[in-house]
Write a protein that binds this DNA or RNA. Structure first.
Lengths: 230, 230
DNA sequence: CGGGTGATTGAGCCCGCTCAACTCTCGTGG
DNA sequence: CCACGAGAGTTGAGCGGGCTCAATCACCCG
């Protein structure tokens, strides 16, 4: 008897295209409490670099920053994770970044071992894991273009458009993170971020009501972010 | 009757840890000619950004650069691919970067649709795809730290150590790519790369016999790359 | 031995960084 | 209700690392 699962595609038709499958639905069908849920206070560490990767995490509410440090304190934030995002997925047994809550944050934990077992049984789960990882690659590729080749103004414009997309209140962006976090995400200093915001405000691309409450003009910002040829 | 495959882990024991599974063995068991093999001349395009992602590629010999462009010509190389590396894996239906051969290069092509079918039947294949993607994420995270926070000297030192690791002739690095390629990989100009090489030569961390034939002192370079805390 | 490409070196400039002062916001307590 | 303090954000002045522009050098090919 054939021990293989019935032949089907690794990319089930109902899941294509990936665009129709935003992060918030990833593993939506899994029991949400494989490892329970947990609340973190602002600035509390969720896991540290080089800690054993026992769980995979999904943001329910709040926001998370994942970063690496150099020995002299320079910090690079690799990703912000917002509600619906999966994070802490590793191919090795240890985390590669440190994860911290930015604001009070609720996450659900999924035991990694049970996820592996599930992925082995269920093509959809395996495909969703693959999609999450491949999506991370795609976003990382765009970030590398930004970090390696864009000006400060282009970086900040790109960042605001990204946040507008991900926070899904188009035109109104309520930033959970500080200027320092933004700076460490964009490879700039907080002063440069602040100056770029002022410059964008002056040029009419955004207006502020409180430093973290931003009303943006997408059309203008898109023009300033020096879109790649894509 | 249970339609699921027999319960087993998504991470088969014999594949752990990921370190023991270098890229050259990824999908080693697949028929190497699902879509045939192909030779590219130096600087020949393999696929373009936004082209349909019909194949996945594996480098047999030579070297490949994958990059993004901004509309004014600024270029960021997202990755170099060396013999054994898999590339062109996408979660969407279109490529996100342009791929070009750096030197005369042989690749094998794997039809993406057959890979999807295989992944759906065979947990090992699905796991290997996942590993390849997750490995890309890990490397991208280190590159973001480099691009966002390291100095020119640290970047070049890091690059040489990476190439020493990947070309596996420890101490002797035979670079297939030009200074311009290195610059676009590290987010620098070719002049800055050249000056950093000279500086490393002066400090005794490397010696050159021809611009692309480098003898390195790993210990000294490791000290200069400002290791992250990991 | 030329011709051409790639690499190195030099001179000067500019964007983003550093250091520092000031402002705004907001929570707390009198 | 206001005063106060602390943290976050903004703004300013000046510096410097890496960029730009340009000349020279090295190494292959004929």
């Amino acid at each position: 008897m054939d021990q293989l699962a019935p032949v089907q595609s690794f990319r089930p038709a109902q899941l294509r295209p990936a665009e129709a499958q935003p992060a918030i639905y990833i593993l939506a069908g899994l029991p949400q409490t494989c490892g329970g849920s947990f609340d973190y206070r602002a600035d509390e560490e969720i896991y540290g670099e080089e800690e054993e990767a026992e769980f995979v995490y999904k943001v329910v509410s709040g926001a998370v920053r994942c970063y690496k440090l150099l020995s002299d304190g320079r910090r690079q934030i690799g990703a912000f994770h917002l509600p619906g995002d999966l994070f802490g997925l590793e191919d090795r047994d240890r985390h590669q970044l440190t994860a911290e809550a930015i604001v009070p944050t609720k996450v659900v934990l999924l035991k990694r071992t049970s996820l592996d077992t599930l992925a082995a049984r269920d093509v959809d789960v395996a495909y969703q894991l693959w999609t999450a990882a491949a999506g991370n690659v795609r976003r990382a590729e765009s970030r590398m273009l930004l970090l390696g080749r864009k000006t400060a103004l282009e970086r900040v414009a790109t960042f605001l458009v990204e946040m507008d997309d991900r926070l899904q209140r188009h035109g109104f962006v309520d930033l959970p993170m500080s200027r320092r976090d933004i700076a460490d995400y964009l490879g700039l200093t907080l002063e440069t971020v602040s100056r770029a915001m002022t410059q964008l405000k002056t040029s009419g691309a955004l207006s502020l009501s409180g430093a973290r409450r931003v009303r943006i003009d997408r059309t203008l910002l898109l023009r300033m972010m020096e879109a790649d040829i894509a």
